[in-house]
């Protein structure tokens, strides 16, 4: 279990992460969503001990994460920047390095993944394409078999088939070696089926944390004549609205009770589900 208490991160005058209390029980796959600059990378970096909290604590099974080998050897954060080795190192050397530094590293599995992603072992890190570098990060991240494995947009630059391979391997290895996984992503539609829970960050705060399947029921769109819709949504949580001529569509947050459903039927209003991505857009301030 990873626990933060009053965790706060500041860069000079700007607060990247406002005080955050979070418990993430082990053995689940969490999605971390948020717009650019919402604090995703800051949060993951701090959870991994890459960065020291400005205030508050992060512990992993009770052990402080910052600079304590009992915790850090069990944590792996893969970022999109290829920071796994020197640019002049070959992939083979970096894998050998990881095997020396990581207690649980599985070199056989790493080799298997290298083949699957068709990565050239003798090439150096700096000569890889963006997508290849991301794929290599995923190889290291999965083969590290860390109890807490985090991918911070580790799929950047990967084409659709490679991403699919990533998702397949992630699930396959997660089932064989259960662990806690955090994935930060903008690919909501594509990756949300992988998650059990989502954390939505917005402007350095945790906006929402929920089972992703529950979240899929949380949005309702109401469509009908403007005046009727306005009446109907009075007192409900309105996330956004659009108008086309006399017709209005309003996106509501929170499941509708039976009374409202009956009412909607009587007034001839159309109720519809809201896709996760759309809900996310509305929750984080709309498409501004």
């Amino acid at each position: 279990m990873i626990t933060t208490s009053a965790l706060q991160v500041r860069y000079g005058d700007t607060t990247a992460l406002h005080p955050l209390d979070l418990d993430l029980p082990a053995g689940r796959i969490y999605g971390v969503l948020g717009r650019n600059g919402a604090g995703k990378t800051t949060l993951l970096s701090t959870l991994a001990g890459f960065r020291k909290p400005s205030a508050g604590t992060v512990t992993f099974d009770g052990v402080p994460v910052f600079d304590d080998a009992r915790a850090t050897t069990r944590i792996c954060l893969i970022r999109d920047d290829g920071g796994l080795g020197d640019g002049t190192d070959t992939l083979r050397d970096i894998l050998a390095l990881a095997a020396m530094l990581r207690p649980g590293f599985d070199s056989v599995y790493a080799t298997e993944l290298m083949d699957r992603f068709a990565l050239p072992r003798k090439r150096t890190l700096r000569t890889l394409s963006r997508g290849q570098r991301s794929a290599f990060g995923i190889v290291v991240g999965l083969a590290s078999r860390a109890d807490l494995t985090m991918f911070d947009e580790a799929h950047l630059g990967m084409d659709a088939p490679s991403r699919q391979l990533f998702h397949d391997e992630l699930l396959r290895d997660y089932v064989r070696h259960p662990r806690t996984v955090l994935l930060s992503t903008h690919l909501i539609e594509e990756q949300s089926p992988l998650f059990e829970q989502v954390l939505i960050l917005h402007q350095g705060r945790l906006l929402l944390r929920e089972d992703v399947d529950d979240l899929r029921t949380r949005g309702v769109s109401v469509t009908g004549p403007q005046a009727v819709v306005d009446d109907f949504v009075f007192g409900l949580t309105v996330l956004g609205e659009r108008q086309l001529g006399p017709t209005k569509e309003v996106t509501l947050f929170g499941a509708l009770d039976e009374e409202h459903r009956t009412l909607a039927r009587r007034y001839g209003l159309q109720l519809g589900p809201v896709a996760l991505q759309e809900l996310f857009i509305h929750l984080t301030g709309g498409a501004a």
Binding site: Q164, H167, D168, L171, R172, P193, E196
Partner: peptide
Amino acid sequence: AYYRINPAT
């Protein structure tokens, strides 16, 4: 695995 969804789901 087949449908690429979370096992808990």
